[in-house]
């Protein structure tokens, strides 16, 4: 069985750790965020038992939306087995007693750090992204008072100046991850540090996509089927990464590949970053 039954819940704690008032506060912020796709809604982030910077925003969003009948998947760098994914999944198993799974197709809520699953998401699924820096203009302007005005005025010229400079100096746009997008033709948004390979998956996804930045105290959202366009120039269109190699385990040629160093003489292997996608292909008979 791929769905893990809940373990012993933490006695004396609220369901999913947060008290009901806090969850209500977060849900109100989420509703505002869904009503204004891509707009950063301030929220009163609480201290969690995991450190700020380690996913507390995502955890608070998940804690606010998850219910007893949900099935939770947690990934970090595309894998269910990386240390932080394990830690967060355990946290919810203990505080919410929900069933957990590795399989994207079986999850109702997926919390992620830095990747979008290769398997296409379905209507009814919720993706929760962990966000370190929510503000796409932060590199240009350190002050929050100023960046809020820039969003209010759709004053995004500076962002395009950066892209222009990239092309002028390097011949191409040099942003590899956390690539800025225009949401619903109005708000400039950071999709969190997913590689640009994953940006196209955000566009008009049937799933509800929620973004939580705990330390920076911001929530934003993409309701299902929202247009999301990666910034580019008409004559320098957005493009994604490609590999010459295929996955050394399942042979996939269409997924994001991790580069594994196998020896100290430059030996390299490439394997799917999305471990569930890879194991699913293997189970279906695909091989390298």
């Amino acid at each position: 069985m791929t769905v893990t039954p809940p373990s012993e819940t933490l006695a004396g704690y609220s369901f999913a750790y947060l008290d009901e008032q806090t969850k209500r506060m977060i849900r109100r912020a989420l509703l505002k965020a869904v009503a204004i796709p891509g707009y950063q809604v301030p929220f009163a982030s609480r201290e969690m038992p995991l450190p700020y910077g380690w996913g507390t925003g995502g955890i608070q969003v998940t804690a606010a939306v998850i219910g007893r009948d949900d099935v939770l998947k947690v990934i970090d760098q595309g894998s269910d087995d990386t240390t932080n994914a394990v830690s967060i999944r355990k946290f919810f198993a203990r505080t919410a007693g929900v069933r957990t799974t590795d399989r994207t197709t079986e999850a109702t809520v997926i919390q992620t750090r830095h990747r979008v699953p290769e398997t296409k998401l379905q209507a009814g699924q919720i993706m929760v992204y962990q966000v370190p820096i929510p503000e796409p203009l932060r590199w240009l302007e350190a002050r929050e008072t100023e960046t809020r005005k820039m969003h209010a005025l759709a004053d995004y010229g500076g962002m395009y100046v950066k892209l222009y400079e990239d092309i002028a100096h390097a011949g191409r746009i040099t942003t590899a991850y956390d690539y800025p997008v225009m949401v619903n033709h109005r708000y400039l948004m950071r999709p969190s540090p997913i590689p640009r390979f994953d940006n196209p998956k955000l566009d008009r996804s049937p799933a509800l996509q929620l973004f939580g930045a705990g330390r920076e105290k911001r929530i934003y959202a993409l309701p299902p089927y929202t247009p999301v366009k990666s910034l580019d120039f008409a004559d320098h269109p957005f493009s994604i990464e490609r590999w010459d190699e295929r996955c050394a385990i399942c042979g996939a040629g269409d997924s994001f590949l991790d580069e594994i160093v196998t020896d100290d003489r430059g030996g390299r292997r490439f394997v799917c970053s999305d471990t569930d996608y890879c194991s699913g292909r293997v189970a279906a008979g695909h091989r390298a």
């Binding site: 380690w54 970090d76 760098q77 595309g78 990386t82 240390t83 932080n84 750090r113 830095h114 990747r115 040099t174 590899a176 991850y177 956390d178 540090p193 997913i194 590689p195 640009r196 390979f197 990464e241 994001f256 590949l257 991790d258 580069e259 970053s273």
Partner: peptide
């Protein structure tokens, strides 16, 4: 925390 996916993206670039 692991940052190898973003690092991979940077390596490619």
């Amino acid at each position: 925390l692991p940052h190898y996916v973003d690092f991979q993206a940077e390596l490619n670039l």
